[in-house]
């Protein structure tokens, strides 16, 4: 199979290719950082937790099998994170400050429940961060004109005609630009963001 036609996750799973792994880390590190900020952890503890989560991912990603359900990867990651946070608080014999700890426990319980608002927030934040990072990764593969045409239509909500006029391109060309980039995003994100197909 042509290497370029495989998604980032597939490349990470099928090889020891360090660049793909680094890219995966560069996607998930900021996501985990942002997510952990709500637990008021010491930043060094948060970094350690992130290292723990990522080392589990590194260890098990090759055997991670998509079960065909939506959001399987982000759910898997979420489970790892929940386990690590529980272990962490247990190991610290964590005594909540003025109820803060029980809030954390409650938050984790809700995070475990796929239907809760907390889980919905997790899903959304996951998809948003991953997508934004994927876009950053694939952007250099396109010409600047294609990128701009895509951004103006998708990020800034311009119509194809408006974008075409502004960029001095044909409407046909800006429509194609948008389609190409979206296609590439879906391809690269396959397995990480399955609602995108």
């Amino acid at each position: 199979m042509d290497l370029t036609s495989r998604s980032l996750l597939q490349r990470v799973q099928s090889s020891t290719d360090e660049e793909s792994w680094d890219r995966l880390v560069s996607i998930y590190m900021p996501l985990l950082q942002r997510w952990l900020q709500q637990y008021e952890l010491q930043s060094s503890d948060a970094e350690d937790l992130i290292q723990d989560v990522l080392s589990v991912v590194a260890r098990d990603v090759t055997t991670f099998e998509h079960n065909g359900r939506r959001g399987a990867f982000r759910s898997w990651l979420k489970t790892i994170l929940i386990n690590r946070l529980r272990n962490f608080w247990r190991s610290r014999n964590y005594r909540p400050a003025a109820g803060g700890g029980s809030d954390n426990q409650l938050h984790l319980q809700q995070l475990e429940d796929p239907a809760s608002a907390v889980s919905v927030a997790w899903n959304r934040e996951h998809d948003q961060v991953v997508l934004a990072r994927l876009w950053a990764m694939i952007e250099p593969r396109f010409s600047e004109k294609t990128c701009t045409a895509f951004r103006r239509q998708v990020m800034d909500g311009l119509s194809a005609a408006e974008a075409a006029e502004e960029l001095d391109m044909t409407v046909n060309a800006v429509l194609i630009a948008k389609s190409r980039v979206l296609k590439e995003l879906r391809r690269e994100g396959q397995g990480l963001l399955e609602d995108l197909e």
């Binding site: 560069s26 959304r124 998809d127 948003q128 997508l131 934004a132 990072r133 876009w135 950053a136 990764m137 952007e139 250099p140 951004r151 998708v154 990020m155 909500g157 979206l182 995003l185 879906r186 609602d195 995108l196």
Partner: peptide, 23 residues
């Protein structure tokens, strides 16, 4: 489309592609 709506509503309206600064 979900991709379009996620990209449009991403948290980073300050610059067009804040996450792109890696490259």
């Amino acid at each position: 489309d979900r991709v379009v709506s996620l990209l449009r509503n991403s948290d980073a309206p300050l610059v067009d592609e804040p996450t792109a600064a890696e490259t």
